[in-house]
Every structure is written in structure tokens, then in C-alpha cells.
Computed example of a mutant assay.
Amino acid sequence: MTVRLENENLIVEIHEHGAELQSVRRKDMQLEYIWQGNPKYWGRHAPVLFPIVGRLKDNQYTYQDNTYYLNQHGFARDLNFIVISRTRNSVTFELQDSPLTKSLYPFSFLFQIRYELDNTDRLKIKYYVHNPSKQEIYFQVGGHPAFNAPMEAKAKFTDYYVNVDPVKEYDRIKLIGPYSNPTEPEKFNAHIPLRLRYDDYKEDAIILALEKEPTSLILSRLYESHGVTMHLENADYVGIWTPYGKEAPFVCLEPWWGLADTVDATGNLTEKFAINSLAGHASFSGDWNLTFF
């Protein structure tokens, strides 16, 4: 089932499978902002990442002397959520633990995703994770939205820039293969707009450490163009990615509360790099939004 949100300017579509944002269209010119999932390049639109972000070492981890297998980015993107509330301009999806999830991830959880479209063409997104048990749980969560680049006729990928605000130097977390290397961060200078160039993604995503500081990323061309502003209220990291070697006409801006395992990861979930924990009956929320112009 697809849920449709609408205001005067935009039509937003979200599918219950993975609670995935699939389309944002501007009515006056039928402009589509969201990548439409051509499998030649990448078959998804904006998957939700839970209960891990990135890859585990050997796609496995241990918890209380048991070994569990979990593919990159977790299982939420491949499961059906249920709609628990809905209005003309908002919807909340929910996923709870099940025998299937317990075979991959031995925790009870309640995971909700709320989308709300306001009259300023802003789509608010909230991730809500609740621990319904007495046992402490461990998790990561994130988004992976892909935006068309170019968005407009006669433009090309390399016409687009990503501006990061606050304008300062950020720690950039490098990857070794699919694994994080947080011990040797590089500096990313946000005083200079990041022009989209395919060669910059030879070593996978550009990952910036945000340390929960409110941060905005603006994707657009320099002059009189349409684009997207992503505002992250309390994210730990943001990833910028396009698949290397394919010259794909899209770029992902990804808010993350977690990262892939390190090369020297022990495999113990409680020791995992960038893991979050929730005490019994505690809750977590991750907030971000997209403004389309």
C-alpha cells in the first residue's frame, strides 16, 4: 500500500514496504525530486536503515555468546510496516519485533517512522525507537534517501553542489572497503561547496561526523534551480554517496545514528562502534526534515 500526502505544491508518496519514501513531485511542473529506482544503477528510493547502519564484519555479530547474521543496513527496509495513524498531511508507520526479527536480532522493540508535510514544502521525518522490555537493547538507525541529480532538463550531475551549514571543518570518517576507520579522520572543509564529481566516491561515501549538532545540507545548482535542503536536528553522522563507476544520475544524503563496523571490530554487539543503547522502557528519537524548492 502507498500512502499519499499532499499540499498546494507537492505530492509525497510513501510505501508501507520498508516505510520507504518513494516520490516527491512538484505539481506545477511535474518535477520529481526522488530517485525512481532504476536497477541499472540502484534499485531503491530512500530505504530506512535499522537495526544497523552499514556493514557488520563478516555480516555477523555476537550477543550473550550467541552468533547472529545480519546483512548490510539491517532488515527494516525489507519488511512491511503497518500504518497506525494517518491524516491528509501526515502518516506514522510502525514495525515491531517478531519471530523473524528475533532470529536476526534478539531484542524486543517498537520502531515508528512519522512523515508530516507542512505548508512550507517541508517534509518532517521522525524515527522513534522504544524498548518495551526490561533488557537493555542495542541499535543503530538511519536514512538513505536518493535525490535526482539532475532534477531539471539540460542540467547534468556535475552542475550540482552540496553546501553544508554550519560552515566549518568537519571530521570525515574514511572507509576501508565497507568498514569504518574512525581512528584516522580527515578534515572536510565546508567553506568550499562540494561539487558533485563521480571520482570522489571511489572509496564509497563521504561521511561527516556531526556530533548531534543541528546541520543543514543544500543540494542544488548554483543559479535559479530547484533543489532540496536537508536539516538534521540531532544526527551523529551524515553520508553523501553515489555508486562509483556507474555515472548514476542521483546522489544520496543520508542521516545516520550509527556507522559500519571498524576493520578491527570484535563482533560483540555491545562493543560495536557507534552503537546506541536503550535501557528498559526507554525511548529514542531521531529528527530530520527535507524542504523542496
Rank of each mutant, 00 (worst) to 15 (best):
I206H: 07
L208E: 12
A209K: 15
A209M: 14
E211M: 04
E211S: 03
K212Q: 09
K212C: 00
K212H: 04
E213Q: 13
E213W: 05
E213F: 06
T215H: 09
T215F: 11
L217N: 07
L217A: 10
I218Y: 09
S220G: 12
R221V: 15
R221F: 08
L222S: 15
Y223I: 15
S225W: 04
H226T: 12
G227F: 01
G227E: 04
V228F: 05
V228A: 10
V228I: 07
T229W: 05
T229S: 11
T229F: 06
H231W: 08
H231C: 05
H231S: 14
L232F: 02
L232N: 02
E233P: 02
E233N: 08
E233S: 10
A235M: 00
Y237F: 10
Y237K: 01
V238F: 02
V238A: 07
G239E: 00
I240S: 11
I240P: 07
W241K: 00
W241D: 05
T242F: 01
T242Y: 00
T242I: 03
P243C: 01
Y244R: 06
G245I: 12
G245A: 12
G245W: 10
G245S: 08
K246Q: 04
E247L: 11
E247V: 08
A248D: 09
P249C: 12
F250N: 01
V251I: 13
V251C: 04
L253D: 00
L253V: 05
L253E: 01
L253K: 00
E254C: 03
L259K: 06
A260M: 04
D261P: 10
D261R: 06
T262V: 09
T262L: 02
T262A: 05
V263G: 12
D264F: 07
A265E: 15
T266A: 14
G267C: 15
N268G: 10
N268I: 15
N268H: 14
L269Y: 13
L269F: 15
L269I: 15
T270R: 13
T270S: 14
E271W: 07
E271K: 13
K272C: 14
F273H: 12
F273Q: 08
I275A: 09
I275C: 08
